[in-house]
Design a protein around this nucleic acid. Structure first.
Lengths: 116, 116
DNA sequence: ACGATAGGTAGGAGTTTCCCTACGCGTCAA
DNA sequence: TTGACGCGTAGGGAAACTCCTACCTATCGT
């Protein structure tokens, strides 16, 4: 419907990223590959059930997936939602590109012609 | 400290983006240029003070700036934090590029050699 | 000076987040 | 089968979020 996923889906992804614990989990999965919850939990001070809830938030956002292996749950990074974030970001790129070129400054600072 | 802003700053930016009203405000500023609050408020059903609070969240995240002009406040998109989001995203890019190439599949599905 | 306009702030209600401590369920080892 | 291990869920409490209705300040037009 939207250019980049539904509004609710974007809400879920951005909200999931709006927490340093969850961003760190993603980084650990990115740099360390798929891991069981234990291995992830070792990096945090919090009680393990709290981390479980963070993992649920990440799962609901589609940012990680789990695969059962014996009594372990192996979590893996799923980057598709991040690709959508990048797509969402695209239309804004010209704003910082323009800034760097020092050009858009004047153009952007005063196009008050059509705003009522 | 971090590669891309402090954790708290990223929290603020991602949290600001985790709301469809605020994302729509950014889109309006991107497509319509700098605008007063009135012009933005016209696009939403909510009471105007509620939108004011959304604008405060965006301001605190550094995503918009205001410039007073008479009794109006002209809001402008500030894309720098979005550029930092893109930077934050970069280390994850290979994950969806690999997926597209259909290569990383096998590589990523089982590098369980160093995870304790 | 007076009223209308633009927009922020105060405070409150309902919901959600984030952490905790129990506890339940499935799996492995003895 | 019995116990330990790996993880999730339940439920609760503190704080934050999101909306509202007043209300306040500053500016413009008359």
């Amino acid at each position: 419907m939207n250019g980049t996923g539904t509004a609710a889906a974007n809400d879920r992804v951005f909200a999931a990223l709006a927490n340093s614990v969850r961003r760190e989990v993603l980084r650990l999965l990115r740099d360390g590959g798929p891991q069981p919850v234990q291995a992830l939990a070792a990096h945090f001070d919090m009680a393990r059930p709290s981390l479980s809830e963070h993992l649920k938030v990440l799962r609901d956002a589609g940012l990680v997936s789990e695969q059962r292996s014996g009594r372990q749950r192996i979590y893996r990074l799923e980057a598709a939602p991040l690709a959508e974030v990048q797509d969402w970001l695209h239309p804004y790129e010209r704003f910082w590109r323009d800034r760097l070129k020092g050009l858009g400054e004047l153009l952007d600072r005063m196009p008050d012609d059509d705003a009522s």
